[in-house]
């Protein structure tokens, strides 16, 4: 039925047409390592669709389907309901969508899935714009970042997906980053075993859209965490744990200085942006501490 024409070490093909240095490809591999072959994956159009394949060619060894951008979570819910009707509790249903398919277009179906409490694992790889169609700004694009639809820098702030997820009181939600793969895998494992809907929001460096040297992908993911631009925390049944609690943040230039999308900013604007990110980090983490139920 499914011909394995080329050998691969894991469940994902080696020769995938993701760009060189793509963070998504690494996330996909680590996710597949964690969830294993007993999984049904739902992928919307976007960069991740390269893994569901072109025509008769597929890039994953597991079962899956490619749905529309807006109904990834709804389809995953449907698959879960069908599996439940069969009495199948061991198969994991995985929704794997980008920031456009999660925060913009797919938000209502995602909210519906959270509200119904279907046991679906949802991974959002956040590369902070619509990279597959040519870097259009999404609601996940951070302030001041230049994209083709926001050439002078985005004026509004990034939408907070985690707060939306936490407002639904789902069993597990977490932000993760490529800087620490053990941490990412641990979070994916927890999301897989959660008794209800779970969300893992992963920060994904994109060399094409962010305009940096592909070799720096992991460094930028690390810099984002160290400068406070990306906050690592997890939410487990009301309890919030901040994973990267920093007293002092790294210089903002180690993160935004290497990216072409912040190139239009002058030194003054960069310091201003750095100050904004710093303030946001400390207010946000103190807010999370107050929200946590110990």
């Amino acid at each position: 039925m499914y011909d394995i024409k080329h050998e691969a070490k894991g469940l994902v093909t080696h020769g995938n047409s993701a760009c060189a240095g793509c963070g998504l490809e690494l996330i996909m591999r680590k996710t597949m390592e964690v969830v294993g072959p007993d999984t049904i994956i739902v992928i919307p159009p976007g960069c991740a669709a390269m893994f569901s394949g072109f025509g008769k060619e597929g890039g994953l060894k597991i079962a899956g389907c490619q749905m529309n951008l807006e109904n990834t979570a709804a389809c995953a819910s449907g698959i879960r309901a069908a599996l439940n009707a069969q009495g199948n509790t061991h198969t994991t249903v995985l929704g794997f969508a980008g920031d456009g398919g999660t925060l913009d277009i797919g938000l209502q179906s995602l909210s519906g899935m959270f509200e119904r409490g279907d046991r679906v694992m949802y991974v959002c790889y956040d590369n902070e714009a619509y990279m597959n169609t040519g870097v259009q700004g999404s609601s996940a694009t951070p302030a001041s970042a230049s994209t083709t639809t926001t050439p002078g820098g985005k004026t509004s702030q990034k939408k907070d997906l985690m707060m939306i997820a936490m407002a639904h009181r789902i069993p597990y939600a977490a932000t993760a980053s490529l800087q620490n793969l053990n941490d990412l895998k641990k979070k994916l494992e927890k999301a897989k075993n959660a008794n209800g809907p779970s969300l893992v929001h992963v920060h994904t460096p994109c060399p094409t859209g962010w305009r940096f040297n592909p070799a720096l992908s992991i460094e930028l993911a690390r810099a984002a965490v160290r400068t406070g631009a990306w906050i690592l925390y997890e939410y487990e049944n009301g309890k919030i744990t901040i994973n990267n609690k920093l007293t002092e943040l790294a210089e903002i230039d180690t993160y935004i200085g290497k990216q072409g999308r912040f190139k239009h900013l002058n030194a003054e604007q960069k310091t201003e942006l750095g100050k904004q990110i710093k303030d946001n980090y400390f207010t946000y983490t103190s807010m999370l501490e107050r929200m946590s139920i110990h």
Binding site: M1, Y2, D3, I4, K5, H6, A8, T13, H14, G15, N16, S17, S52, G53, G55, K56, E57, G58, G59, L60, K61
Partner: peptide, 12 residues
Amino acid sequence: PVATDFTAANTG
């Protein structure tokens, strides 16, 4: 369309 082949592109 249904994928029936697990293939790899020559990305080398």
